[in-house]
Amino acid sequence: MIQEDIMTGKLAALSRPAPDGVIERILIRTGLADEYTLIEGPIGSAYVAWSDRGITAFVPAAAVGPRSAFEARHARKATYVLAPPPRLARHLDRAVATGRLGRLPIDLSSLSDFQREVLRKCAEIPPGEIRPYGWIAREIGNPGAVRAVGTALGRNPVPVLIPCHRVVRTDGRIGSYAYGSSMKRDLLEHEGLDSAAIEATARRGVRLVGSDTTGIFCFPTCRNAKRITDAHRAEFRSEEEAMAGGYRACKVCRPAA
């Protein structure tokens, strides 16, 4: 006759610790932990982290240093892997190559509604074009919130991918950047913009340009503005001045309310 306590002892000995990595996978799939890798960005390599909801961080490697430093500064637990999952990798490559988000999912779930709105609006700015902070404030229906827009962009968790480098000061100066204004200039130059020329134009007091053939005014870097020939180009200090001259606002870059 087998004693019951021997049998129950054997049953108790069947308990096993969950294998390594189970908790990591649970936390990744619930969006509580991230994976990350190192990719080649438009101007140098960058750490990219993601959850199952999308990209959570994009950090120029030059700004942080080794992997351990990235893991330490990242808000959540991050596990290094060689590459993103295939679908994410495809959209990420395309976003880096084109300067547009396309269908790349971005996980902004840890941000406030206001920050999300600002960043979504920012992501609409096409590569090679810039908009002032005030433009975002007005477009999201909060024209007084220019400073808050600047703060929200400064905390952009995915710079470069969400192109906060394309947002500049209302006076036309390039303005500050989380990773230094020289990186902001480099990113704009990479997209074909001449940052020195932009600032020179701004110094002359020019904020908007118009075409005397169409009677439409734009931000100077709007794709429609770039087509205006010198002979037909009009320059304005403000939307009031442009409107007083009989011009209307471009429907693509929407330089006025």
């Binding site: 069947l14 308990s15 096993r16 610790p17 969950a18 294998p19 189970v22 908790i23 649970i26 799939r29």
Partner: peptide
């Protein structure tokens, strides 16, 4: 709770692979 779930799932499923899957899926 992961060790307990895994240990039980080892008996309720066919193998360690399934038990690991069940453990992950349970918490998700």
């Amino acid at each position: 709770l992961q060790d307990g779930v895994y240990s039980g799932a080892l008996q309720f499923t066919r193998n360690g692979h399934d038990a690991q899957d069940v453990t992950q899926e349970t918490f998700i």
